[in-house]
């Protein structure tokens, strides 16, 4: 029988690769540098994936949110906020663990065998400041005051946009290279810092900077897809907390805003005390036991 930790890793990786492939199914456009311009671009992907990426088939929710907020006739995006609330209420940060293309890239960087550091908990609140300032407050104030606003998070911070959008487009469009000024180099610096961060801190960008993770993290408190710990089975071995890529102790905080529902803790638990799913944990555990018997 296969090792449950290995099985869990393979299953999650296959889902991540499928989500990455679906979100970026126009990979041939990397050669021509053209963007896909079909109807699927009307829809958002749940994860972070730049819509100016030549391979992108769907739109980034943060980019879309800021595109609508920046228009004086709209100012706030009901469509994207509704999408984020609906997805978050069902899946919470399982989106980060399974569906986000930038999450997969971070996992790949994190898999490089170097020593890993824990980020101080206080720094995990930075992403809420970024969500509040760069995605909600400043763009809204600017559009009310001046009639327009730039997509601030995308413009000044987003490393996914630099990696997936700016770099391939600069490589394929000679005429764009004159536009690569101080702002581009600032963003390239952020991208390099994020890549270095991901080598030494697992899911560095998710923990520290991602505004999408901040939204889904808040919804983790109520999301239908959730983690349950049966404390009557728990033997307090600490393996779950030790293997968590997000530095969560699932026994103490099963609804943590940081938990990406990756299932590493469930696979590592020798007592079968942890379940993840949509229903009641006890009922699921009973079903699994019956299926095994």
């Amino acid at each position: 029988m296969a090792d449950p930790v290995f099985k869990q890793k393979i299953r999650r990786k296959l889902i991540q690769i499928a989500a990455f492939g679906f979100t970026n199914c126009h990979a041939g456009n990397f050669i021509t540098g053209k963007l896909y311009n079909g109807k699927f671009k009307e829809f958002c992907t749940p994860g972070l994936n730049c819509y100016s990426c030549p391979a992108a088939a769907v739109s980034c929710p943060i980019g879309s949110l800021l595109a609508v907020t920046g228009r004086a006739d709209l100012k706030v995006s009901f469509y994207v906020w509704g999408f984020l609330l609906a997805i978050g209420a069902v899946l919470g940060r399982a989106v980060c663990g399974f569906l986000c293309p930038f999450g997969l890239l971070q996992d790949m960087l994190g898999a490089i065998p170097l020593f890993k550091l824990r980020l101080p908990k206080a720094l995990t609140y930075v992403k809420y400041v970024i969500l509040g300032a760069f995605v909600i407050v400043i763009p809204t104030v600017l559009v009310i005051a001046t009639g327009k606003s730039a997509p601030l998070f995308c413009k000044y911070i987003c490393p996914a946009g630099t990696l997936e959008g700016a770099v391939p487009l600069l490589l394929t469009h000679e005429q764009l290279r004159d536009s690569a000024g101080a702002l581009f180099w600032l963003k390239a610096g952020i991208l390099v810092l994020v890549i270095l961060g991901c080598l030494f801190v697992r899911r560095f960008f998710c923990k520290l900077l991602c505004p999408l993770g901040a939204v889904y993290g808040l919804l983790n408190k109520v999301s239908l897809y959730h983690l349950t710990v049966d404390k009557s089975k728990c033997i307090d071995c600490g393996r779950c907390a030790g293997c968590c890529p997000m530095d969560v102790d699932p026994v103490k905080h099963p609804r943590s805003a940081e938990c990406i529902r990756c299932g590493a803790c469930r696979a590592a638990c020798p007592a079968g005390a942890i379940t993840i799913g949509f229903g009641d944990g006890k009922k699921r555990a009973g079903t699994e036991e019956a299926a095994e018997a």
Binding site: S64, A67, C154, T162, G165, S179, L183
Partner: peptide
């Protein structure tokens, strides 16, 4: 609004404008 933004190269979205 989203479609129009997503099908062109958004220079400011990627730090080039």
């Amino acid at each position: 609004a989203i479609f129009k933004k997503a099908v062109i190269v958004c220079m400011e979205c990627i730090g080039l404008g």
